[in-house]
Simulated scan of single mutants.
Amino acid sequence: MEATRRTAAVTGALFLVTEVAAIAGLALYRPALDGAAYVTGTGADQRVLLGALCEMVLLLAVVGTGVSLFPVLRRRHEALALGYACGRLLEAAVIAVGIVGMLAVVTLRGKATHAGSGDGAAFEAAATALTAIHDWTFLLGPNVVLGANTLVLAYAMHRSGLVPRPLTLLGLVGGTAICASAVAVLFGIYPQVSVAGSAAALPVFAWEVILAVRLLTRGFEPVAPAPAPA
């Protein structure tokens, strides 16, 4: 029981880290998201590098949640536990691609600073392409894959009763909403960073924060042992 309580606390802390690191990383990346203007301007390299560090913390915390929850979920639903752990690894891999894109923009700005003015258009085009890679990973990782992972985790916890049912329903609604929003952004119905996109992300944000606080303060709900196979 003590080990399970400790696992719940670690998982809750990791979920809070993912939220803080994701928000901080996006805010710090802001100057470099307009790649063409960034490479020809004064730049804010230290700020972007700090954003990359936050994203690396996010990446590790994302993997950590999958690892920490695996032994708990496996006792009731091994396939869902494995699916969630693999899904978090996939989400982290997509985030890593976005980090590399932003770091490459910083490198490109340094080279553009020492290059002749005649190469400016080429540097701007390359920076625009790298920024586009980050934008697509931001859509696929923290939206599509995150939404799918949220659905898997919420469904597993709903079936096992590890947390109260109203909380798992919030996760199911949030996962569905952010996946649907990602499809809308993919087909150009509205921008990802918009009122509609933010509204679709709120249920997932609420699910992860409330789940984190619940695990930190109360732990998992006591669950009856699964019946032995015949």
Rank of each mutant, 00 (worst) to 15 (best):
T137M: 11
I23E: 08
V163L: 11
V67E: 12
G188K: 08
R30H: 11
A127M: 03
G101A: 15
A93G: 14
L170C: 08
R214C: 08
W207P: 03
A196S: 13
R88S: 03
A180Y: 12
A125M: 09
L108I: 09
A3K: 13
E2Y: 10
T128V: 04
A24R: 03
L130M: 10
A228Q: 13
N149A: 05
V39D: 11
H134E: 02
G110N: 15
D34R: 12
V62P: 06
N143W: 12
G98W: 01
F138A: 15
I210N: 00
R47H: 05
Y190K: 13
R5F: 09
R159F: 05
M1Y: 11
T7M: 13
A200Q: 02
R76A: 07
L28Y: 03
P31Q: 06
T40I: 14
V185P: 09
V39N: 08
G120D: 14
C179N: 13
A196I: 07
L49D: 04
R74T: 09
L130E: 00
A3S: 11
A228G: 04
F123R: 00
L153E: 03
L58I: 06
P191I: 07
T128D: 13
L50V: 07
L26E: 10
A52I: 10
A85H: 10
T168D: 10
E208C: 01
A122Q: 14
Q192Y: 11
A85C: 12
R165G: 01
A180E: 08
T107R: 15
L146K: 07
A52Y: 01
A8V: 08
E55R: 15
L170T: 06
A115L: 06
P203A: 02
V100P: 03
